[in-house]
Simulated scan of single mutants.
Amino acid sequence: MLGYYLHTKNAQQALDAIKKGLSSVRISTDLNLSEQDFSVTDQGLILDEENKLSIADLKKIVKKTQRIYICSDGDMEPLEDRSVGYYKLAPTDGAPLLEISGVKMHISKGTDPFKSASEMAKQAVRSGDNVLDCCSGLGYAAIAAHRLGAKKVLTIELSESVMGLRAQNPWSNDLNNDGIEQRQGSSFELIETMPSISFDAVIHDPPRFSLAGELYSEGFYCEIYRVLRSNGRLFHYTGNPHIIKKGSSFVDGVIRRLKAAGFKNIQKVDHLMGVSAQK
């Protein structure tokens, strides 16, 4: 682990323990993957000899409800990247979610991002598959595909900022497992370099249309169709943009273009805000 991860919930747990005069508190410092006991005093929380958080530090963390802090080498830094735009990881009751300039990149209402990504993977992936994961973000769908028994997963992410954040995210550690290949670049460009009929399943989770319209184009869908083997499966996250024109919804447009590219058995998957299809 790169350090100790703290956010509003566990910082508040530490403050409550201090207020009660307890000598220790049981909290998660790896974003809900596990819990352990740490010492508290009337001065604050003791993570280890180097990393001690004062009551003022803990109150600062509590105040920033949508921020995660990493504590390491005696420092406390937010888990974010402001080099181009504003990228950060935000806490949930499960896995953290990726937020870009205030927009959440995952389904998190009533679930957590890892669970929803796992459900997306289940729509397309079977044991023994070769899987292409386009626009992978924190890599949750790729990890889920691997856990479902995929033989090989190629996962593509364009943003170097996102790649940097996921390298610091404990929930993304399994991307380093054998059988998963991470590639940085444009899915739109890289798919053209891939051999035909080389994947059994594709998971496509693009940014919203206004940011990456080419990833919703018939041309891109034709490329997905080309690299899929016969009867190969696609799950395409479309999100839930409220774009209604003359009775034709955004998702209906996606379905129309998938059909034009050759896909069959196209189904809306409402609870995952996406569409499944087959070659």
Rank of each mutant, 00 (worst) to 15 (best):
P206L: 06
A167V: 10
S116K: 02
C135S: 09
I243K: 14
P170E: 07
K152T: 11
G179C: 04
P241E: 01
E181T: 15
Q123M: 13
H146E: 07
H204G: 05
N240Y: 09
D129P: 07
Q182E: 15
T238M: 04
V202Y: 00
I180C: 02
Q168N: 10
V162E: 04
Q168H: 09
C134E: 04
I203Q: 00
E214T: 08
L234S: 00
L154A: 06
E119H: 11
V202P: 01
Y221A: 10
G137P: 10
T193L: 15
P113D: 07
S161G: 07
V153P: 05
L165E: 04
M194H: 00
A121M: 04
A212P: 10
A150E: 03
A145L: 06
A124H: 00
E214M: 11
E157I: 10
D252P: 06
D205W: 08
N231L: 12
D205M: 08
Y237A: 02
P170F: 08
A121T: 05
K152Y: 12
A145R: 06
D252Y: 10
K152M: 12
R233C: 03
D200N: 15
K245G: 08
A145G: 05
V153M: 04
K122T: 08
F199T: 04
N130F: 11
Y225K: 15
T238E: 04
G137C: 06
T238W: 03
S127G: 10
D174G: 02
E160M: 11
F250Q: 05
S186L: 06
F235D: 02
G185A: 03
I180D: 04
S187F: 07
E181S: 13
A124W: 00
E119K: 12
N130I: 09
F220A: 05
S186P: 12
L158W: 14
K122I: 06
V251G: 07
R233P: 03
E157W: 09
S136T: 15
P241Y: 03
A117S: 15
L234V: 08
I203P: 03
N231F: 12
A124N: 02
D200A: 05
D200Y: 04
I156N: 09
K152L: 13
G232S: 01
A145Y: 05
D133S: 10
Y237S: 01
V227P: 09
L175A: 10
G213V: 09
G253V: 09
G213F: 13
S198C: 09
A124I: 00
I197H: 15
A144R: 05
L154C: 09
S127D: 06
A144I: 07
G232W: 00
K115F: 12
S196V: 11
A142C: 08
A117R: 02
L165D: 02
K246I: 11
G232N: 01
H242T: 14
G213L: 09
G179E: 04
A117Y: 03
I224Q: 12
N231H: 13
L234W: 00
Q168V: 05
K122Y: 06
F209A: 07
G253D: 13
E189Y: 10
S136C: 15
P207I: 01
C135D: 06
I244L: 15
D129H: 14
P195M: 05
L234K: 01
S116Y: 01
G253R: 13
